[in-house]
C-alpha cells in the first residue's frame, strides 16, 4: 500500500510540475477569453490533501511568491498571491477532517467553494478600484473558479484526491 502510494507520488508530482511549467510558460495560450486557470492552486490542493500540513502551508506561501515572480501582471500587488494561497491552505487544512468525512458530492462542492472564495478574495483585492465588484464576480471569479476546478477534477480522475 505504501509502495503504491510512493509510486503514485513519483508520477503525480513530476506530472504536476510539468503541468505547472506549461501553465506558466504558455499562460497566455491556455486562456479562454482572458480566463486562465491557476495550476499552482491545483498543485496546492493535491499537496494539502496528500502531504503534511507543514509542507502544505510552506508550499502555499512559496507557490504564491513563485506565481508573482513568473506570471506577468501579478506584481501589481506583490504579496497578494502568497497571502491568498496561505489563507486558502490554512482554511483547507482546518476544515479538512470535516470535508474528508463528508459525502463525495459535498467533498467536491467544498473544494469548489474554497476555490471560489480564493478567487473572490484575490480578484476583489486585485481589481479593487478598477472594476465593479459584480463584474469581477461574473467576469473573472466564476469562470476562473470553474476552469481551475475542471483541471482539479481532471487530476482527480487520474490520481484520486481522497486518499489521505
Amino acid at each position: 500500500m505504501i509502495v503504491n502510494e510512493k509510486k503514485s507520488s513519483l508520477i503525480l508530482y513530476p506530472l504536476l510540475s510539468l503541468l505547472f511549467l506549461i501553465g506558466i510558460i504558455f499562460n497566455d495560450f491556455i486562456g479562454i477569453a482572458g480566463i486562465r486557470p491557476d495550476i499552482l492552486l491545483v498543485f496546492l490542493f493535491v499537496i494539502a490533501l496528500r502531504e503534511s500540513s507543514l509542507i502544505a502551508i510552506i508550499a502555499a506561501f512559496c507557490f504564491g511568491l513563485l506565481q508573482e515572480l513568473v506570471l506577468p501582471g501579478a506584481l501589481l500587488y506583490w504579496g497578494l498571491s502568497p497571502l491568498a494561497k496561505t489563507l486558502l491552505v490554512f482554511t483547507l487544512l482546518k476544515t479538512l477532517p470535516l470535508i474528508l468525512r463528508s459525502q463525495k458530492l459535498v467533498f467536491f462542492i467544498s473544494l469548489f467553494g474554497l476555490i471560489f472564495v480564493y478567487y473572490l478574495f484575490y480578484n476583489l483585492l486585485y481589481y479593487a478600484g478598477f472594476i465593479n465588484w459584480l463584474t469581477v464576480i461574473y467576469r473573472y471569479t466564476v469562470p476562473e473558479s470553474a476552469y481551475t476546478f475542471l483541471i482539479l477534477m481532471l487530476v482527480h480522475m487520474i490520481f484520486p484526491l481522497r486518499e489521505k
Partner: peptide, 29 residues
Amino acid sequence: HLEILTVIFVGVSLLLLSRTENHVVLVLQ
C-alpha cells in the same frame, strides 16, 4: 505550528503588499 506559520506568512505577505513594485522582484521577473 500551522497557526504560527500562517501568521508569519500572512505577516510577510502583508509586508510585501505594502512594498509593491520592489526593484529586485521587478528585475527577477
